[in-house]
């Protein structure tokens, strides 16, 4: 049963089938993104009460947290798709990793910018070398290295393989650096207060709009990645023809 399900899943590594699927899913994802991000942000920014201590600046959370959530998980997704390319040789997978790298960089930069704006009003400084901030700087370095490596190699297949290896080894080293940074210094940033099962959570009036924007950002990512991967596939086809 599981095997049959997996086979159905691998079927979409065929570029033609993938493009058909992308044509169905991407408008849906885009629609969900529009329908959740705009109400989520409006609800979050205008219809919640300000924090007793941080006042209105707390509302940066509705962009900061989803962007950070995506920045980390996009790298995880790139690692998985890279593994799929190295093991099963599905080219769609490598192209998906390539097209999500740019989105990952954007999300990391958005996280850092919103975070430093938030920090300037609550901590009194734009940047401290706090473990969480440092690990985002490290993450940015790995994203940039990945993109530089993609652009520096001419042969597409070699580039895909080499960057996949870079991504997998890089994820190990990024995690290693992160835990070492946490070992050296505990820092200023607050701990996690957003989860589905923990008792100590942020207040419900923030919780629901935050979940809404997170769903919205995720579906925005799905939309963008599908569109970009389809474009990359067409580009690859053009290169093969001419």
């Amino acid at each position: 049963m599981e095997n049959r399900l997996l086979n159905k899943f691998w079927k979409f590594s065929n570029p033609v089938l993938f493009k058909k699927l992308a044509k169905i899913i991407s408008p849906l994802a885009g629609l969900i993104a529009v329908l959740t991000i705009i109400p989520g942000l409006v609800w979050g920014v205008f219809f919640t009460s300000p924090d007793y201590k941080q006042m209105e600046t707390v509302k940066i959370i509705f962009i900061h947290v989803p962007a950070a959530f995506l920045a980390i998980n996009i790298y995880l997704m790139m690692t998985i798709t890279s593994l799929v390319w190295l093991i099963r040789r599905h080219f769609v997978s490598a192209l998906a990793a390539k097209s999500s790298a740019m989105i990952g960089v954007t999300m990391t930069i958005v996280t850092i910018i919103t975070g430093s704006l938030w920090g300037s009003s609550t901590w009194g400084t734009y940047w401290v070398w706090d473990p969480r901030l440092t690990s985002f700087a490290i993450l940015l370095c790995f994203y940039v290295g990945y993109i530089l490596l993609w652009q520096s190699i001419k042969s597409l297949e070699t580039a895909a393989s080499v960057t996949s290896l870079f991504c997998i080894v890089g994820s190990v080293f990024a995690l290693l650096s992160r835990y070492i940074v946490f070992f050296i210094d505990q820092g200023l940033h607050q701990g996690p207060t957003l989860s589905l099962d923990q008792e100590k959570n942020i207040d419900n009036s923030y919780y629901f709009p935050l979940i809404l924007t997170m769903v919205g950002f995720s579906s925005l990512f799905v939309y963008l990645v599908l569109v970009r991967t389809t474009t990359e596939l067409y580009k690859y086809k053009l290169k093969l023809i001419g």
Partner: peptide, 28 residues
């Protein structure tokens, strides 16, 4: 990893992130 590209600039740039753990632990 960077065999296909001769530029030592690229090599230096993408090696630096991998040196983070060693540098952090070493200085610490």
């Amino acid at each position: 990893l960077t065999l296909s590209n001769r530029s030592s600039f690229l090599l230096t740039t993408i090696t630096i992130p991998f040196y983070f753990p060693t540098l952090l632990l070493g200085v610490f």
